[in-house]
C-alpha cells in the first residue's frame, strides 16, 4: 500500500508570497508536492505551540514552518519566536517517543521560491521515509 504523508506547512506572508502567486497549477509545475497544505500567516511569530500540536492531532504526519531569516523578519523577532516554538515541540515529541524531525523550521529569504518549493520537497521526502505519524496509531 502506498503511503502519502499529510504535511502541514505554516508560512509567513512574505516567504510564501511569490510561490503562492504562481497559483496551484504553477506550484505543481515547479515541483510542489500536492500533499503539502499551505497555511499562510501574517507572521510566523503569531504561531502558537498549541496550533502546531493541533496539526498533529488533526492527522498531520509532518509539520513545518517557513519564516524569514532570523535577522530579517518584518516583525523583528517573529521568525525567531517561531523557531523557539518549533524547538519546544521537538522536545515534546521526543518526550512522547515520536521522531522530533517530524517538525522543522526553515528560514528563507523573501520571494525565493525555488528554495520554498525545496523545503516542501525536503519535508515530503523525510516524512515519507519516516512513515505515518505514531499519533495516528497506525503501524508504519
Amino acid at each position: 500500500m502506498t503511503y502519502t504523508p499529510d504535511i502541514q506547512a505554516f508560512c509567513c506572508h512574505y516567504t510564501s508570497q511569490q510561490t503562492v502567486a504562481e497559483g496551484r497549477e504553477g506550484m505543481r509545475e515547479e515541483g510542489m508536492p500536492a500533499n503539502v497544505t499551505l497555511n499562510r500567516l501574517v507572521c510566523t511569530g503569531k504561531l502558537q505551540v498549541s496550533t502546531l500540536l493541533k496539526a498533529f492531532e488533526e492527522g498531520a504526519d509532518g509539520v513545518y514552518v517557513v519564516g524569514c531569516p532570523a535577522d530579517q523578519c518584518h516583525n523583528v523577532k517573529g521568525s525567531q519566536r517561531a523557531a523557539k516554538r518549533v524547538n519546544a515541540i521537538k522536545k515534546a515529541l521526543a518526550e512522547l517517543a515520536v521522531e522530533p524531525e517530524r517538525i522543522e523550521m526553515f528560514h528563507l529569504e523573501r520571494g525565493f521560491h525555488p528554495e520554498f518549493i525545496e523545503a516542501a520537497q525536503v519535508m515530503n521526502k523525510r516524512i515519507s521515509a519516516l512513515g505515518p505519524c505514531p499519533f495516528k496509531g497506525e503501524t508504519p
Binding site: 505551540v49 498549541s50 500540536l53 493541533k54 492531532e57 515534546a92 512522547l96 517517543a97 495516528k136 496509531g137
Partner: peptide, 15 residues
C-alpha cells in the same frame, strides 16, 4: 491548552 493537547496525543499514541 498545550498540556491538554499533549495528553490527547500521548494517549492517542498508546491507542
Amino acid at each position: 491548552e498545550i498540556l491538554a493537547s499533549l495528553i490527547r496525543l500521548g494517549m492517542q499514541k498508546q491507542g
